[in-house]
C-alpha cells in the first residue's frame, strides 16, 4: 500500500447511539452551571489563616504525641480493670470449687449418718465402697429426697439411744460410748 488514492475515503468514526439525546441534557446542565458561576462566581470563599501551613507537619506530630499522652492513662486504667477482673474470676472460681468440695463432704457425712441410722448393717469398709460407687448426682438426689428423714427422729433420750446401740451395734466398738451413757 503506497498511494492514498488506493484507500476508500470514508468516515470510520461512529457516533454512539442516543449520544445526542443525552448530549442536549448534559449541555443544559453545564449551561445552568455556567449561569450559576456567572451569578455567584466560583471562587472559594474560605481562606486559610495566615501561617497556618507553616510547621504544619510538626503540629501534626505534636498532636499525635498529645493523643498518645491522653490515651496512655486510659489504657493503664483499662488494663488494671482487666487484671482485677481476671483475679476476681480466678478467686471466685476457686471459692466455688472449695464450697462444692465442702458440700460434697457434708453430703457424704449425711449419707454415712443415714446408713448408720438404718437397720441395715454395714461395715465402714462397705460404706466407703458404697459411697465411692455412687456418682455425686445420685448422692445429691438421695440426700435431697431423704433430708426430711434425718430430722424425723425426735425421741432422742438416753434410753432410746442406748437401746439403739445395743440392738444395732455390730462390728463397731461402741462399748466406751455406752459406758459413758
Amino acid at each position: 500500500m503506497s498511494k492514498l488514492n488506493d484507500i476508500k475515503k470514508e468516515n470510520a468514526f461512529k457516533i454512539p447511539e442516543d449520544y445526542f439525546n443525552n448530549f442536549s441534557r448534559e449541555l443544559e446542565t453545564r449551561i445552568s452551571e455556567e449561569k450559576l458561576k456567572k451569578q455567584f462566581g466560583n471562587k472559594n470563599p474560605f481562606t486559610v489563616p495566615e501561617n497556618y501551613f507553616e510547621n504544619f507537619s510538626i503540629k501534626i506530630t505534636n498532636h499525635k504525641t498529645k493523643i498518645i499522652q491522653i490515651i496512655k492513662p486510659v489504657i493503664s486504667v483499662a488494663a488494671g480493670i482487666i487484671v482485677i477482673f481476671a483475679l476476681w474470676q480466678i478467686i471466685f472460681t476457686k471459692i466455688n470449687h472449695e464450697n462444692n468440695i465442702a458440700g460434697n463432704i457434708t453430703d457424704t457425712n449425711k449419707i454415712v449418718n443415714k446408713i448408720n441410722n438404718t437397720n441395715i448393717k454395714y461395715s465402714e469398709n462397705e460404706i466407703d465402697i458404697y459411697i465411692n460407687e455412687l456418682d455425686i448426682n445420685t448422692i445429691y438426689e438421695y440426700t435431697e429426697n431423704n433430708e426430711q428423714d434425718d430430722y424425723e427422729i425426735t425421741d432422742r433420750n438416753d434410753e432410746t439411744v442406748y437401746q439403739y446401740f445395743v440392738d444395732y451395734a455390730d462390728d463397731n466398738d461402741y462399748t466406751e460410748l455406752i459406758a459413758e451413757l
Binding site: 500500500m1 484507500i7 476508500k8 470514508e10 470510520a12 468514526f13 461512529k14 457516533i15 454512539p16
Partner: peptide, 8 residues
C-alpha cells in the same frame, strides 16, 4: 466506536 477496517 471506530468501525473502519484494517486499511482505515
Amino acid at each position: 466506536y471506530f468501525t473502519g477496517d484494517q486499511t482505515q
